[in-house]
């Protein structure tokens, strides 16, 4: 059992606050992804859990044990670093065995575990090599194997795939998912890549300016962003936002379209819809086409709606040209509303 509980953890560097009182609980064997742009505090949070950084306040619990005053080696964690941190003066075998030797396990046990994890990561033929003789992808495998060999309760990963090229990243992503699911560890995984986050996570914690804006399943985060930031950060292209004015009967007028919406005492709120959730038709939002980008399976159309940018993903058989006036009808169950002041979902 290794549930991780982060309680009111804050981190300040001088006058700069990197983390504002973070609360997050990660269930045993859960795969939690911390997602956010660079500088949002995700790596700092991970390093606080690892013990590489001390929080300015708050508590970190792992497996029911308070660990925030313990050094990394006493926390029962293993970590995979962004630059792999494969020790250059040790062979792959000794790299994977490093933590086991620190635990003073018998040689037989060490060899057994190293061979097992090496096989799991498909690097058994590299065991005698040094880091300098490995490719980036192979080093990545060594780093993961080294962490897995520890059979830790918790694995922490700091952007482990960001230094790989696109194709390799895809391959490693699928492999990581399988290996980590089989290892039954609790995982915290830091990334700025939303596709990686969506594909790997049981739950995603979206971070922004030192806050966790939303922590939920990938689908939930995508479908029901808790705040405007989440909608604008996740999704490629991101969500569209258009101001909505209050109509007489409590419904809302959005770019020439009147829609039922949430009750609010505000005069204007924000209407939001994902680009793929609109259909071109005879009624809907008034849009003027600015750019048309055929992408194969569908066509990305950038329009002007109420003087703002609006992107729509349309069937590729819809023929549109620059300057056309379109009517874009949003799917009613996919419409989201945000408070323009708090930016929270309504």
């Amino acid at each position: 059992m290794a549930e991780i509980a982060i309680k009111q953890v804050a981190k300040r560097f001088g006058s700069f606050t990197a983390l504002h009182s973070i609360d997050l609980t990660i269930a045993d064997q859960e795969f939690m992804v911390l997602l956010g742009a660079s500088g949002c505090g995700k790596t700092t949070l991970l390093r606080i859990v690892a013990g590489l950084e001390t929080p300015s306040q708050g508590e970190v619990w792992i497996g029911g044990r308070r660990v925030d005053h313990l050094p990394p080696r006493e926390r029962g964690i293993a970590m995979v670093f962004q630059n792999y941190a494969v020790f250059p003066h040790l062979t792959v075998f000794e790299n994977i065995a490093f933590g086991l030797r620190m635990k003073k396990l018998p040689q037989q046990e060490v060899e057994g575990r190293v061979n097992r994890t090496a096989e799991l990561m498909h690097i058994e033929q590299l065991l005698k090599r040094y880091s300098g003789q490995l490719s980036g992808g192979q080093r990545q495998r060594v780093a993961v194997a080294r962490a897995l060999a520890m059979e830790p309760d918790v694995i922490l990963m700091d952007e482990p795939l960001s230094n790989l090229d696109a194709l390799l990243r895809l391959e490693m992503r699928a492999e990581l998912k399988g290996v980590l699911a089989a290892s039954k560890t609790t995982t915290i995984y830091v990334t700025h890549d939303q596709v990686e986050a969506m594909s790997l996570a049981d739950r995603i914690a979206v971070m922004h300016q030192g806050h966790i804006v939303q922590a939920a399943s990938p689908v939930e985060v995508y479908r029901n962003p808790a705040a405007r930031f989440v909608g604008s950060f996740i999704g490629n292209p991101p969500m569209n936002f258009i101001p909505a004015a209050k109509a007489a009967d409590g419904s809302w007028t959005v770019a020439g379209l009147t829609l039922p919406g949430p009750k609010s005492d505000k005069q204007t709120i924000e209407f939001a819809i994902r680009p793929e959730d609109v259909d071109a038709g005879t009624e809907g939002l008034h849009a003027t086409v600015r750019v048309v980008e055929p992408l194969g399976p569908h066509t990305l159309v950038t329009c002007d709606v109420e003087g703002g940018l609006f992107r729509a993903i349309l069937e590729s058989n819809v023929t549109v040209a620059v300057g056309d006036h379109l009517r874009l009808l949003p799917k009613p169950d996919r419409i989201r509303w945000f408070d323009p002041e708090t930016t929270n979902a309504l």
Binding site: P72, P88, M102
Partner: peptide, 27 residues
Amino acid sequence: IPVELEEAAWTLGCTRLQAFRKIILPL
């Protein structure tokens, strides 16, 4: 010498001194 090497050693069970002796010093 990347700090990460040292940090990796800490997470793998080294004290600061052990990490220095086993990782930093040889390098």
